[in-house]
Design a protein around this nucleic acid. Structure first.
Lengths: 205, 205
DNA sequence: CTCCCACTGTACCGCAGGTACAGTTGACAT
DNA sequence: ATGTCAACTGTACCTGCGGTACAGTGGGAG
């Protein structure tokens, strides 16, 4: 109330917190406008409908996630020049980050929207798709770099391996949410990390 | 219409198909009763509210999934006595099964409900939790049996490894749904399979 | 013949999303 | 000082959905 940043992002803040806590449909426009201290008319001035809100939320979320990965792996790069070690450090940092969050990670918006996708329009679904394809490309690139130094012990599809980072994280968050535990996602990431250690282990020790 | 089985399970059939296609909230009672050829009153005669429907659907789904695992791994047992090979065969069968489905696997109800859980009552959430804990126990048992024969190359938390089967499957289904691809889940299962091969590989070849 | 299960049908309520639009307020430009 | 525009407020209204309440009905089992 004191320092009010522009209303649009205030709406997005409130909406994101509510949606991650209880789902998109369970979050009413009424409570968003109450939280943001505006009128219903004000909400529809910024977003023509709930779909537009979803799209804006997804965009913001994906940007934040991409910045997070950029930050994580650039910090890892500073600690090691070896692409495998860099990956292993980055995943460790990611796991720690997931565990540090006291209430657990809020859960990935991607999965939340994927399972309600008929509710959303094509724009929202495309955003979702592009985000996952972006992460595939990012991680596939890193794995290919690793594979040039350490020949993989088993043949793997690099696209699928790239997807596995997102997949394991998403799956871990589903477990975490359903079980009510706080560290499932970080544990799953750490298991994936041992997978990579085994997959790219040097032939002769 | 011709041969009408008992109405209750007909409602569940229609509801399950609709929910997996577009999500729980997007599925109206109206369309369920239209599909089942009954009146709204008839629906509420069988289920006091949508939560009761969700609970019944989850129970049915979890039972079916458990029977599927029982079947898959008992077939695998017939093909090999070795616990590791048995697991690898079972996962292969699972991956094939996921891929065979022409429209792709409908997606797991667990994830769908996990991300809308504020919508559901404690009974539904507990069912969800118990199902995942059941799978954890099942697979942890199998992995412990494997570990007694093949010492794991890296120390792993057996509970987390048990969870990873569910987690990789759930994550794969999220990817599949979001990407609109039909084989992401089976690919992820196959990658997990190579993980197990590497993790439990004999020390000296 | 009766009783009850499995419904049908109707009427009704509250809430949420969404539309429409008229009016207000403050900042900034001329 | 005046006009203009963006960013709202407020009200009224419509639709569809979940849910309640309950009166009535048709058919099979006893």
């Amino acid at each position: 109330m004191v320092a009010k940043p522009d209303t649009r992002s205030r709406i997005l803040d409130i909406a994101e917190a509510a949606v991650l806590e209880k789902g998109f449909e369970a979050t009413s426009i009424e409570e968003i406008v109450a939280g943001a201290g505006i009128s219903r008319g004000g909400f529809f001035y910024h977003f023509k409908d709930k779909n537009a809100l979803a799209r804006a939320m997804l965009e913001r979320y994906i940007d934040a996630e991409n910045r997070l990965y950029d930050d994580l792996f650039s910090r890892a790069r500073e600690l090691s020049d070896d692409p495998l070690h860099c990956m292993l450090i980055g995943l460790k940092l990611l796991a720690e980050l997931l565990e540090e969050m006291p209430t657990g990670h809020p859960g990935c918006v991607i999965a939340a929207t994927a399972y309600q996708d008929r509710l959303f329009d094509k724009g929202v679904r495309d955003l979702n798709r592009q985000a996952i394809l972006g992460w595939r490309k990012r991680f596939r690139g890193m794995f290919e770099e690793i594979a040039r130094v350490y020949e993989p012990r088993e043949a793997v599809n690099m696209d699928a391996l790239g997807d596995m980072v997102s997949g394991v994280a998403e799956g871990g968050l589903v477990l975490q949410r359903a079980l009510g535990e706080h560290n499932s996602a970080s544990q799953q990431i750490m298991l994936f990390r041992t997978y990579l250690k085994l997959l790219f282990a040097p032939r002769e020790a």
